[in-house]
Amino acid sequence: MPSRPVVLLAGGTAYSLVVAATTPFTLAADVLTGLAVVAMAVLVIASWPLRTRTVRSRTSPGARGAHPYRPWIVLFAVFTLWELANYAHGSRAAHPTFSSITDAVNRFYLLKAALFLGWLVFGLSILRQGAGRGRFAARRSETGRHAGQRGEP
């Protein structure tokens, strides 16, 4: 019997290939994309805890100056500023935004399917991390369990 990740990957790929065949601004595109959006909302409500706990980074207590999230904050800031700068200029041909680039990519069936599959995988990652089942979340809970066994807080 195939494992759960294989089933998820096969199902996600099949769904992405179907969605890639639709045209934006049509009922089919609305329904198929909307189904994934609604599924995300339902799964978040069903699997996420009502209250959250602050997640600590893997940085050791000794390296207090380190901020492993800073490079990603810089990336997000640069991305946002460049998107806004292009958007403000108006002409999409001369100043392409992220949306206009993805529109160009979406004209190719397989690239659109890959992009949709990537979006689904991103959603799955959000679900797993929020529910405390992600790769690093598992490591965190494992560390906490060992600390508890040693009588540490």
Binding site: S57, P68, Y69, S125, F136
Partner: peptide
């Protein structure tokens, strides 16, 4: 230690 993994960023 200096760059967080993308899934850590999502987890945070």
């Amino acid at each position: 230690r200096t760059v967080a993994h993308p899934s850590q960023v999502v987890g945070k």
